[in-house]
Amino acid sequence: MRTPLSKVRGLGSAKDGTGHFWHQRLTSLANIPLVVFFVWQLVSLNGETYSAVIDRMSSPLVSAVMLLVVISGIYHMKLGMQVIIEDYIHGETSKLFLLICNTFFSIAVGVICAIAILKLCFVG
């Protein structure tokens, strides 16, 4: 969806064009129903026994939507923290370091959540 001219000229100082802005909005839109589902699940699981929680989390529908919550939510928070770092950290080295930490943290938390959800789904 980009013309050759916009490819060389329209990327701006961050060198990634409007991709960051757009993905932040896209995930925020997805997060509205996903977070409502997430809160509803946790509220109804509040104080439940282990077997009731396993029962719920092994339902394919619940684990599928929970996986979407994690993917959309964690990508959204990675993009958000990137903006905070870029706004407040001005030293090139510390900024680069924190941006790398942000990426690693987000991917690590995302994979941990995903593995747990998949394990609950397939193994119980």
Partner: peptide, 8 residues
Amino acid sequence: AWWLIAAA
């Protein structure tokens, strides 16, 4: 994440 890991 902690809660999910705990459940799993």
